[in-house]
């Protein structure tokens, strides 16, 4: 019992002592992911939109994005390094590729699930194809697309750690150092930060997803947080 209390303190000590390095690594990690997401989401949403016009193309593109996702990340880095070099660019390209399946598929599903009645109402009001997309389809599909981005970000947080091996930086650096020097505190503290990061992203996205749904006039399961947010907004 005493020794476990002692261990717990060792982890806290480590986190306090190395708070600078942990903070820098966490920010680096977020930066890599934000960069990849900023590139990947427009591509994925664009592709998801394009394939709504052709069912066979849709099947093929979603299948390909799925195959992409099963390729192990270290193998993918290995295949990309000869072309993009050692460092962040190869990692970001890999992260962009891994983001495609959830984003493309959710965009496709979200756009396809729009109630035809809503589209006809828009047409009857004299909207053009582009206006329909911007003012009817996208707002309705947005929560579904957001759910895809949310899944993607959680995946990327994990894969980006492996990117540290080819010099992309981030929290993976601390994991690799922890392995090299067999420093348990370092591994445990970094793991906790990574997990908290993923949970925080997951939570933030699910809240904003619900807000978008509310905005569309959909029913949302009301939780304490949602009630609070609604009160703040109104």
């Amino acid at each position: 019992m005493l020794s476990s209390v002692h261990n717990w303190l060792a982890y806290v000590d480590f986190a306090v002592e190395h708070s600078d390095r942990l903070l820098v690594a966490t920010l680096e990690h977020i930066e890599i992911i934000a960069f990849a997401i900023a590139i990947a989401v427009p591509i994925g949403v664009g592709l998801g939109f394009l394939i709504t016009f052709d069912d066979r193309l849709a099947t093929a593109v979603i299948w390909l994005a799925g195959v992409m996702m099963t390729v192990p990340s270290i193998a993918l880095f290995g295949l990309l390094i000869p072309y993009f070099g050692i460092g962040a660019p190869s990692v970001i390209v890999a992260l962009v590729l891994y983001t495609q399946l959830p984003v493309i598929r959710n965009t496709y599903v979200g756009l396809n699930d729009v109630d035809p009645a809503a589209l006809e109402a828009g047409e009857a009001m004299g909207m053009t194809r582009l206006q329909l997309l911007r003012r009817v389809q996208l707002p309705i599909a947005l929560p579904v697309i957001m759910a895809g981005v949310r899944n993607a970000v959680v995946i990327l947080i994990g894969i980006a750690t492996i990117g540290a091996f080819i010099g992309a930086g981030g929290l993976g650096d601390l994991l690799f150092d922890g392995i090299s020097y067999v420093r348990t505190e370092m591994i445990v503290v970094t793991t906790v930060i990574l997990s908290l990061l993923a949970l925080a992203v997951d939570y933030a996205f699910s809240i904003s997803e619900q807000l978008f749904r509310l905005n569309n006039g959909e029913q949302v399961e009301s939780s304490a947080t949602m009630r609070l947010l609604q009160r703040v907004i109104s």
Binding site: L175, T191, S195, L199
Partner: peptide
């Protein structure tokens, strides 16, 4: 929650 832990971190935890 476990699935949010990166695979690399799980392997690293097996080391100690």
């Amino acid at each position: 929650v476990g699935q949010t832990i990166p695979t690399l971190a799980i392997l690293a935890l097996a080391l100690p």
